[in-house]
Amino acid sequence: MESYIGKIKEISERLLNDGTVECVVGFRKGTVALTNEPCMITKASDVQDLVWDENCRLNLANYLTGRKEKIAVIAKGCDSRNIVNHIIENKISREQLVIIGVPCKGMVDKNNPEVLQANCATCLHRNPVIYDELCADLVEEQKEVDRYEDVRKIEAMETQDKWAFFEDLLTGCTRCYACKNACPLCYCPTCFVDESQPQWIGKGTDPIDIRTYHFLRAYHCAGRCTDCGACEAACPQNIKMRHFTKKLEKDCNELYGWEAGLTVDQRPPLDSFKVDDPDKFIM
């Protein structure tokens, strides 16, 4: 994927020079090994800073929320789906955006550069679903990957084992909120964790508070999560919080046949009512 960068720089430079956009959102070399950091380029001469390789894990849609200017954004498959989400949720308009599509071959695990990170290994949408420019030919999509193997494994457990599993999963959490800051869906001006009247959730690292936080964070992503993996990539404690969002993703897929961020023409299932919506949970 390193070969893309020439084309990315070329497109960015052209867009900045002819004034089509005021800034380009992309990645530059980070200060930590094996991690690139998001950056905003506003001068054509800075385009040389841009990089692209297998360490561009974060989701750039996160930096578009509520922007007023014209923006170019470099988008791999999941980024583009989150951009669709942003457009659906009126956080940015399509006219403001120039989307530089990157056919993605998957990002590598931050702890083990030999293998793809978990969500990329089972990704079904590597090509951007929406783009204006493309920096390479589209790649072949993965087929016959089992996306929900781990979810089914947990589903098969007994209640107490499930509880213990998540207890164990969340032990390292320090509530630094890196996951919610990296998440392109978490853009509320005041997050429920910061609300104090009423205070929904304690501030400390009480296990129940941690669980409430992760549960509610995941729930807020229901029908919106694109499984981009930014939360796990950002977590300093390597917590696999995708176990929460994955379950919701699977349910949305099974109950409503919905996958987030594939089209701007359709309202998401939790936002629309249909007479035949499943209601098995009501007695």
Partner: peptide, 10 residues
């Protein structure tokens, strides 16, 4: 809202 019943259980 999910906040309500989580608070209640908590």
């Amino acid at each position: 809202s999910p906040k309500f019943f989580l608070a209640a259980l908590r």
